[in-house]
Every structure is written in structure tokens, then in C-alpha cells.
Nucleic acid binder design. Structure first.
Lengths: 135, 135
DNA sequence: TGTACTGTAATAATAAATATTACAGTATGA
DNA sequence: TCATACTGTAATATTTATTATTACAGTACA
């Protein structure tokens, strides 16, 4: 993963956890992360599609957590933003080569195993626990 | 990680393991992976800098493993190619925001923990074991 | 000395990630 | 009902990352 989306989503969710009684606007959130409000809205849209956030349109609108921070796992955030396997993508090797012919199957297995292993770890970490680290 | 470098490096090392008594040329390897020889040479250069491969220049030259496949861990390959943390990069949040001010430190910790966890897994997997999966 | 390699740099091409702009749609409340 | 302040989303531009290609000097072999 060579992007900033996990950090952005975690930042958004941390803010929502900290101010859980208010609806936060994309502009407010963007000001904290220091990025463009439209990017925040797109990321919120994704988190909403993943059931982590709910939003209210119109004046006075904004977003809040869709469920308690204790029920949002870091794995949920990771799954919502990851563009590829932890270990990356595959080539399209030469099928005429005995190694090339089969390697993608073995690589896929390795990727899957690694992914599952990582998810097990991230499933034991919650947003609540993360936000508690802030004094 | 959203690139193909891990797969490319693993492919190279798998070939070298399978034909461990020969020096393989970048062109041969490129033919198996189905990519450009110069890309292979660049990847080999990286693996060589990481002590996994040794090469011989000139006519009849090529590359081979620098040590037995049983001593090359998947973690070594991963470390050699990864461009960023498993979870990605960070933003540069607003220091005037109480959350923004501290979040990068906490995110860095999370990234580091996750990384270490993953490495522990990958350190238990060797290139030898991987190549044994080929019939 | 010709040949077949590596090593590496420069450049080009493609793809991914991020930023920006714009605007329709929606809810609020004066 | 209308001005206002939001969201949602698309279109586009910009920037950065990734991969491919070309070129060529250097090296070793026969």
C-alpha cells in the first residue's frame, strides 16, 4: 500500500470518535487533516458504504460514527481502503515456462495467507483503543 | 503495496533456486516473467544489494543465489522491495488541531507494530519452502 | 578481437493517487 | 419561501509512482 487513504480514514474516524455527539462537516475534518474537503467527502462516502459512518445532508449536516468505536475494528478500516494485497500485484508470466506457468497460483496463495494473517491482527484492534492513546 | 516488485523478485529467486547450478541471464529470466530484461537487471541489482543474489559479468555471465534457498526468508524479499509501510503513508495534518497534532505519532506506532507482526510471519517462510510447492 | 553478457542511466509511457472545481440536491431556519 | 450551509458526486487536472524501453560503457570469455 503506497497511499495515504488508511491514514486519512483513520484520522476521520478518530475525529468522529472524539466528538461523537456532533455531526462534523467535511470542511472541519479537512482542516484537521490538511487536505481538500472533496477528498474527505469521497473518503467518507467509502466509509459509509462500508457501514462505518453515517451522514446527514443539508444545512447543519455532517457525519458521525455509524456504531460505537468499540465495534469498529482496524481491520474494517484496512479492508475499506486497501487497493491490492499486502504483498502487491502479480505479473502475467510466460505460460510456456514451467515455473511461469504455475507461479501465480502459488503467489496468490502466499498473498492470501499473508493477508489473512494480517487481518487476524487488525481484527483485535479497535478504533476505541486507538483513540484512547490521545491523552 | 500496489506494485509488482515482490512478485517479480520472488519469481527471479524461484528460478535461481530451480536452476541453482547455472548462471541465469537477465534475458532468460525476463522471458519467464514476461517483462523487459532491463527491469530484471534492476531488480537483480536490488536483490544483490540485499545480499540475496550474486552476479557475474561478461560473456557467459548471469546470476545465482548468494546463499542456499533455505537461508533466504520471504521477509528478506519483502524488506528488499517494499516502498512504504503495510498500511501506507501518512498525511501532514494540522498541528493546530489537538488530534492532528499527535496523530502521526500514533499512526507511526500502529504502522510499526503491524509491520513487525507481518515480518514475524514472513521470517518463518523460506524461499526453499516456497519453491517446493512446484511439483 | 568479436561476442554475449552485466550495470546503469536516461527517458518515455502508463497507471495510480491526490487535488481542485463545479454544481445539483437536501435540510434548516429566518 | 428563500438564503444558507451543508452533502454527494462527477469531471478534470495535477502530481507522483510504476513500469517499459533504449542505449551504451564495462567486463569476461573463447
Amino acid at each position: 500500500m503506497n497511499n495515504v487513504r488508511f491514514a486519512t480514514s483513520l484520522h476521520i474516524l478518530t475525529l468522529l470518535t472524539y466528538m461523537k455527539d456532533e455531526l462534523l462537516s467535511s470542511e472541519f475534518i479537512a482542516g484537521s487533516i490538511n487536505i481538500n474537503p472533496a477528498v474527505v467527502r469521497k473518503e467518507i462516502s467509502n466509509l459509509r458504504n462500508n457501514g462505518l459512518i453515517e451522514s446527514k445532508e443539508g444545512k447543519g449536516g455532517g457525519s458521525r460514527l455509524a456504531k460505537p468505536a468499540s465495534e469498529i475494528r482496524i481491520a474494517d478500516i484496512y479492508k475499506a481502503v486497501k487497493p491490492a494485497s499486502v504483498l502487491g500485484k502479480s505479473n502475467t508470466p510466460n505460460p510456456a515456462c514451467p515455473i511461469g506457468k504455475d507461479i501465480n497460483q502459488h503467489i496468490d496463495n502466499l498473498y492470501q495467507d499473508t493477508e489473512n494473517f494480517l487481518l487476524k491482527k487488525l481484527e483485535n484492534m479497535t478504533l476505541e483503543k486507538f483513540t484512547k492513546k490521545f491523552s
